[in-house]
Design a protein around this nucleic acid. Structure first.
Lengths: 164, 164
DNA sequence: GTACTTTTACTCGGATACCGTCTGTCCGAGTAATTATGG
DNA sequence: CCATAATTACTCGGACAGACGGTATCCGAGTAAAAGTAC
């Protein structure tokens, strides 16, 4: 019952992308190495975010990834969904039917309903915070200096040729 | 992010034990085979439930397992805790610190707080239902006949020698 | 200077290897009830 | 009939094999920008 580590990495990758100037893009490798994650695996995560419509990618030189929606429009829940998939946590195995010796599989069991309810509540809370609110929390949480440094880094990483 | 299948099996094992007459005990193997689960693995689960104080075990001939608390006093949450352990779903890896280039590990990140909040809500809903309410739902859910059959089976399984 | 080709810097999807965890099995040791044995 | 020993039926904890999924790496193919080349 552990959440994939990719969810955390994906969330912060999106936070990073939210600092990107308009029309610019960030290569997956740069994102991965900045986050201390495996660059190749980060690529894979970004592709999933792309398939989920959270991120836009452009191939070719000077290509990379950028946000497809506004940061305030991307909830943590969306990221979770993109990385972990749509399946529910609890997968009933028909134990109740076996116990009652009922071949019918219509698991009208209360347990399943309870689990689904719990998960729905869990998900709804993940929907409360967005990439924007997370970034805002960093800004007002004593990380202003680091944020401006980070913004600077993002500029450099997104247009290396114009540094010199 | 899949829940262990053992949780479902453990829940129904406890429901089964709640049908047991006073002072009687049910061997782990009988429980496992009745639930269509691996008997040896069910033993392992039952031992965990024992360590968690949900179940009482007696060794020796005519030994086995019985509930240690009243069925109304065992929440689904307790079962989950016994089987899955106490660790939280979200284990932060310090991605935020890496991103901000802050060696300090004090992850005051909003994400962690959000995840904890979501999990707390999830857990609290699992605390709503107990072994007793689940059994009651079965009783009033159209499974009366199966339940009396099951109760009969439990009697037999708990005192094999007096059958003949 | 323009058209064309090559190089470079990326993404994309798949194939694959690694590794930890969950599932499942097995074993020796301990314990309690039952049965057998000896007097 | 009683005390003691042997058998039986369990649990306990650990060790271990297998399967599966997440993590991570690599590859060929495709794409777009930039750089080089020819005229």
């Amino acid at each position: 019952m552990q959440m994939k580590t990719g969810v955390e990495q994906a969330v912060y990758a999106l936070v990073l992308l939210s600092l990107l100037p308009d029309k610019a893009a960030l290569p997956g490798e740069a994102i991965g190495s900045r986050l201390g994650a495996s660059p190749t695996y980060m690529q894979k995560l970004l592709r999933r975010l792309g398939n989920a419509g959270l991120v836009q990618s452009s191939a070719g030189a000077k290509g990379g990834f950028r946000l497809k929606r506004a940061p305030g429009d991307i909830a943590v829940y969306d990221v979770y969904l993109a990385v972990e998939g749509r399946q529910s946590m609890f997968a009933p195995r028909g134990t109740l039917q076996d116990m009652l010796d009922r071949p019918g599989q219509g698991c009208g069991c209360r347990l399943s309903a309870l689990m689904d309810e719990a998960e729905a509540s869990w998900r709804s809370i993940l929907g409360r915070e967005t990439i924007e609110t997370l970034a805002e929390a960093m800004r007002s949480g004593g990380y202003e200096a680091e944020l401006t440094d980070l913004r600077q880094w993002v500029r450099n990483a997104s247009r290396k040729d114009e540094i010199a």
